[in-house]
């Protein structure tokens, strides 16, 4: 038993998830503000401020171009930071994981529950941002509602990425490295605020290969602009496959870290 990372995962994961949900609900006032304020600020500053100098991108107005990117970035941040800094605090400083594995719940389930929670948080943020974007008239309805369930899948991806870093980081400060060297470049170079096609082809390939956000932005943009194309299959398969691999890897790395 235990060779397989996913072996031994039962519905107990939802009990781990539920602990985080309960803590989130307790402080909902603080938690609900960012997803409302963030799109507002970005749309005003970039969309309607800077955007007045940009007529259209591929026939799309600039605020409409960046709207799906705003959701994608928020999904990335909420899931990644939940499963890095927040999970690390629970694991290392508060010993919450140790407390849980003294019950019938196993470490695999704790990690899976944390990742599911990170994805849920991404979903909540997307669901809260959407009405703001609708109010600005920068996303198509009703199809844009799809960004909410997709936020869960994309959230799983970024939560798994975060958990892999949490499993190997020597300290909470060292988590700044992936944040600045991986997440911030992704925020800028994933077809978020300007089309990927402006970059040299080689950089485009690198972005598509190693920057998960490019695929997430691509799917969200297709949804909010109602512009679906076969390339979406490639994005979705890439996201699904990488998520699965990193999910299993994060559990394996965490078990190595915590079970000695």
């Amino acid at each position: 038993m235990g060779r397989f990372a996913a072996a031994g995962i039962t519905c107990s994961v939802w009990r781990v998830w539920r602990r985080n949900w309960d803590a989130f609900v307790k402080t909902y006032q603080v938690n609900f503000i960012p997803p409302f304020v963030e799109p507002f600020l970005y749309l005003l500053a970039l969309g309607f401020g800077l955007g007045t100098y940009i007529e259209t991108i591929d026939g799309v107005s600039y605020p409409r171009f960046i709207a799906p990117a705003l959701i994608s970035v928020s999904v990335m941040y909420s899931a990644f930071f939940e499963c890095t800094y927040s999970s690390f605090v629970r694991m290392y400083y508060r010993k919450t994981f140790d407390a849980i594995i003294a019950t019938p719940i196993g470490i695999e389930e704790v990690i899976a529950g944390e990742i599911l929670w990170g994805a849920t948080r991404a979903l909540i943020y997307a669901a809260l941002m959407l009405p703001v974007l609708v109010a600005f008239g920068v996303v198509d309805l009703p199809v844009s509602v799809l960004v909410v369930p997709f936020a869960f899948l994309a959230g799983l991806l970024f939560a798994s990425i975060g958990m892999c870093f949490t499993a190997i980081t020597p300290s909470i400060d060292a988590l700044n490295y992936p944040s600045f060297l991986f997440i911030t470049p992704m925020f800028l170079f994933s077809g978020t605020f300007f089309p990927l096609s402006l970059l040299p082809p080689i950089v485009q390939y690198i972005a598509l290969a190693v920057l998960p956000l490019t695929h997430v932005v691509s799917v969200n943009r297709a949804i909010t602009l109602t512009a679906f194309s076969p390339i979406l299959y490639f994005d979705l398969i890439w996201i699904g496959a990488v998520t699965l691999v990193l999910f299993l890897l994060s559990i394996r790395l965490m078990r190595r870290r915590l079970i000695a």
Partner: peptide, 17 residues
């Protein structure tokens, strides 16, 4: 573990609650 009660050396109560 179902029939075990554990008092660990370090306090790991949940400060969120």
């Amino acid at each position: 573990k179902r029939h075990l009660g554990v008092v660990p050396q370090e306090n790991n109560l949940d400060p969120d609650f």
